[in-house]
Design a binder for these strands. Structure first.
Lengths: 207, 207
DNA sequence: CAGTGTGAAGATGTTCACAGCG
DNA sequence: CGCTGTGAACATCTTCACACTG
């Protein structure tokens, strides 16, 4: 195991390795080689080995990696062994979709609170979560010790909301608004930018 | 103007430049320097100049860039001067959110068709779009000459659906399913992977 | 003379190639 | 003998630094 700085691209790929492993485990496969791995994810096998070796010597020479063991190691590395409760702000199109989304592992990620400023929504319940007044956001988030905030409000409101989330003690923000958030360095940001993805996509569609 | 290959990171940033420019134009600013630009987007000013210079000499030495002109150039480069109609597949949580999403410029991107396999949804109308039977996808997409498909179905169905979209003549796919699609090289892929973003986010939340 | 455009230097990430271990 | 782990070579992207121009 080396002590070099870990490239963010490596962190980017860990969730993909994990997904691939889960599929293999479901199928009963016990081992996988970096070569097999890399062909499933279309990348170079040396890449796979290097990525994994940043965190330890997980493989066995001449054999490969044990699927179960490696999956568990990666979950550990990514912090998916804990459970993370999240506060959602903005229960519009995307917000309400997220509240009922089944895509993420419920044992790891859970939307525990939801906020909106629309009086018609406040007090309503969606998927077992009561929608609260966004004016109480700071207090409620810090009260419940929430560490992740999801910003699903219109672009104009996104900066203000993210500041409130940070004030409430959140250390990670998942932003769906198509805008750059200005947040402290010690708060982590992940961006889901649908418009940007589409705009890039059509660039490559020109002939 | 140079003839070097354009880094994909540069394409990545173009939508951000455009957004920033639109804000400035709204405010009535007529010029912007690479320095000013870069501080708004937190990147290096040489980066901005280099990115833009791949496509032409848009700036004026001693002055900067004309906001209107540069915005128009970038729209051109990204192909946002055309209108792109899209076919949405899967009208569940995320799919229906996208059908009513106001985030993207309606004159450029429009969901023109929607498909699902749920008989209860087929025939319903959402935001002016009739939900059609996914079994007719290939024919209908090629009939309407759709070039972009949005995959918003569960992971297990995503590969099959993307193959149908390609068969229908789509050349770009925006995939929301948390799975790697195996598609022909001449079909462009953009991925919106919420779970992956969250998993990466919590990696950085460890202390 | 302020600010662009761009070679050259530097930083970061990927792939090769192979020693070495199980 | 097969496959990992990893230095070294290579490729790509970013930043520096400055010539040059409106």
């Amino acid at each position: 195991m080396k002590e070099r700085r870990i490239p963010k691209e490596t962190i980017d790929r860990l969730p993909l390795y994990l997904r691939c492993l889960n599929k293999l485990i479901d199928r009963g496969e016990e081992n996988i080689s970096s070569e097999n791995f890399s062909s499933r994810l279309n990348l170079n096998s040396a890449q796979v080995r290097k990525d994994l070796s940043y965190f330890g010597d997980f493989g066995t020479r001449g054999v490969g990696y044990k699927t179960e063991k490696l999956a568990s190691e990666i979950r550990d590395i990514l912090n998916l062994d804990k459970s993370w409760s999240m506060a959602l702000v903005g229960v519009g199109n995307i917000g309400s979709a997220l509240l009922t989304y089944r895509g993420f592992d419920q044992r790891v990620f859970e939307v525990e609170m939801a906020f909106d400023r629309n009086p018609d929504l406040i007090g309503e319940e969606l998927n077992g979560v009561e929608i609260e007044d966004v004016n109480n956001l700071v207090d409620r988030v810090s009260e419940k010790n929430i560490r992740i905030g999801i910003v699903a409000v219109p672009a104009q409101a996104a900066q203000e909301i993210s500041e409130k989330l940070v004030e409430g003690g959140v250390t990670g923000i998942l932003n769906f608004a198509p805008t750059l958030l200005d947040i402290p360095d010690d708060v982590q940001l992940a961006q889901v930018d649908i418009t940007k993805e589409l705009e890039q996509l059509v660039y490559y569609l020109q002939k």
